[in-house]
Simulated scan of single mutants.
Amino acid sequence: MNKELNKSVKHYTIEDLEEILDKLPYQIWLKDEDGKYVYINKLGIEKVGLSKEDIIGKSDYDIRDYNIAKQCAETDRVLIDKNHDIYNEEQSNIDGQDIYHKVHKFIVNQNTTKKNLIGGIAEEISLDKKIQLELESNLLSYLDESKIEDDSKNILHSTLVSLKKFIKCKNIEIFLYDEDKKKFQLIFK
């Protein structure tokens, strides 16, 4: 006998959905129209550096550096005023290090209370952005063939230093295959 699931009955719990959100590699949050957090996932909690209890019910001004909080509040206000999704890249400086995020903010309508929630998803793109900025700043050097090899090694070295910090490892080694010698050669360590 083939039993058909009743489509109006949900076969999952809020805890199931929150577990999924906690496993995603993105910071995910919900705020009320006053900018107070009503939900934040595990990665978001880790990035803020406080407990979930210390975040829920608070605004960005309560839990973040003033400049970052101001930036968050400004985009929240634009989102509410214009009532359309916002996709942007945000930069902040934490402990002297530039941090970049791709951020998507949106309105979540709550038909039951007639209030809206501000939803957000952020992905850290600091390493990608650093590589992009280095490539852009060295674009003219790439056009000068006499400088290509030296500049490329410097860019690669700088990128590896950033990558080591980002993935928190001690060492990265790069080997390139030399066709003439028919063997791999250590290029960077």
Rank of each mutant, 00 (worst) to 15 (best):
K10L: 13
H11D: 12
E15P: 01
E18D: 14
E19M: 07
E19V: 03
E19L: 11
D22T: 02
K23W: 00
L24Q: 05
L24N: 03
P25R: 00
Q27I: 15
Q27S: 15
L30E: 00
K31D: 04
D32F: 02
G35D: 03
K36V: 01
Y39P: 06
K42D: 06
L43T: 06
L43D: 02
G44R: 08
I45E: 07
I45V: 12
E46Q: 14
K47R: 04
K47Q: 09
V48N: 11
G49I: 00
L50T: 11
K52R: 14
K58E: 05
D60Q: 02
D60I: 01
D60S: 08
I63H: 06
R64M: 13
D65F: 07
A69G: 04
D76W: 05
R77E: 15
V78H: 14
I80E: 10
K82Q: 12
K82C: 07
I86K: 10
E89I: 11
E89R: 13
E90W: 01
Q91S: 12
Q91M: 10
Q91C: 10
D95Y: 11
G96T: 08
G96R: 09
Q97G: 14
Q97E: 15
Q97N: 15
I99T: 08
I99M: 12
Y100M: 03
V103E: 04
K105Y: 01
I107Q: 13
I107C: 11
V108T: 11
N109S: 00
T113I: 04
T113C: 09
N116R: 08
I118L: 03
E123L: 07
E124V: 00
I125W: 05
I125K: 06
D128E: 06
K129I: 02
K130Q: 12
K130S: 05
L133E: 06
L133C: 04
E134W: 11
E136R: 14
E136H: 13
S137G: 13
